[in-house]
Write a protein that binds this DNA or RNA. Structure first.
Lengths: 227, 227
DNA sequence: TCCGTTTCAAAATGATACATTATTTAGAGA
DNA sequence: TCTCTAAATAATGTATCATTTTGAAACGGA
């Protein structure tokens, strides 16, 4: 077979694993990341570790002070807010495009995905749920007709501080309802409704986070007149 | 004084210098970047060079194929398209917010900036023109009330492949008309009109680029039904 | 000549070891 | 307890080497 096998280098494996550990909350914000210890844990020499840390530094996932080492980057709520705003704008645009491009078969596949996701949520399998949530969202985005845009949205998801949401998981019913609304809007071929459903989904998520962090009343922070 | 002196490491110097060389065009797109040669040129060992290349890779300034080395990133028209889309969405949102926040004094300042910009364009001072263009745009964005969002827009402008526009500069009259439209919409306090004016500005720029690169008729690529 | 295979050199990756420098910690002395 | 000093710690940088892969050159048969 002409399959070109992906040959991941050790440094890439370390980058991916560290990113996963950070975003999943296993490595708390501010934790020190000593090269020799990482090398031991990843069964490698320090050379790939040092390269991996530079890559993560450029992603703003870790911060480095010269000669003092590298730490997991602290929470930057303001940055998270900007990411939410850009996610909301960009993903709703992709959603509008996808809404008029999905075939009936693909719609059925999306529905099956949603069922899987809801099942995982119901049995509190948060690992599967998160994975399926991403697959459900990207099932639409990937059909927006602009691959490079999907790539950029993927970057937004990768750098998104998911661990912010860890301690107080989102209300499952809300998410379920919103996902269903997105699906139904797409089924109806209503691009505008699909885009709005996604905007509402992202907004509601941020409003909850915002209220928890700032203690402010849940006014819509996306309203151009607010803040 | 409690000034903490910045102590640049060698790898940071290499990152900065390579970035400068790439963005200034001294290192052409696609050029190979062999570690040992770079080490020689920067009078360092290979280790700092390898770390520097990882950082630049995360910035998308260079691309690396495993076991095949690192090259200066080539022009990626598809990626430029995604950047245009995200710019259009994000900057028009910032513009809408700014439109209801500018004071009469600031409006006057914006007008003076625009006069300066038009003057620079008229005398074909493209360096000043580009700088003033950015100042004019960001004069609004910076008043949207969300600093972190401005930061992200700034990243979009920094990563933007401006050299794509080098050989055929934009029609100056179009830009001038559109800038004026933005300003007048803000003067009227019409957030929606200001946002739309900016969307039109970005769209028109991309349509021209798109036509030149793909030879396609100038259908609006932002229309969700197109492509 | 054209095409595929073999061989070989170059380069990236990874592993060690060590020097240098700055930070942190521990401890002695006040 | 506080401060200063000294050792330990850790990051940075240098130097070499082994391994693996790629790219190209050499080779040989159709």
């Amino acid at each position: 077979m002409g399959m070109t096998e992906a040959l991941p280098t050790k440094r890439d494996q370390i980058v991916d694993e560290l990113r996963r550990l950070i975003l999943s909350g296993n490595l708390p914000r501010g934790a020190k990341l000593p090269q020799d210890e990482l090398a031991r844990q990843f069964s490698s020499s320090i050379t790939p570790v040092r390269e991996a840390l530079r890559a993560l530094e450029a992603e703003n996932l870790v911060v480095s002070e010269p000669r003092r080492g590298v730490r997991v980057a602290g929470i930057n709520f303001e940055r998270a807010k900007a990411t939410y705003i850009i996610r909301r704008l960009t993903e709703s645009y992709a959603m509008r495009r996808a809404a008029i491009r999905l075939s009936p078969l693909e719609l059925r596949q999306a529905e099956l995905l949603l069922d899987e996701l809801n099942a995982a949520t119901a049995r509190h399998d948060s690992d599967s749920a998160r994975q399926l949530n991403k697959r459900f969202h990207f099932f639409f985005y990937e059909r927006c007709g602009i691959p490079s845009l999907v790539e950029e949205i993927d970057v937004l998801w990768r750098v998104f501080p998911w661990d912010l949401l860890l301690d107080s998981p989102e209300p499952a019913e809300d998410s379920e309802t919103e996902h269903r609304a997105m699906l139904e809007a797409v089924r109806a071929g209503d691009a505008e409704a699909a885009g709005l459903a996604l905007e509402h989904h992202v907004s509601r998520s941020f409003i909850a986070l915002n209220a928890r962090y700032t203690g402010k009343p849940p006014a819509d922070p996306f309203d151009i007149a607010n803040d």
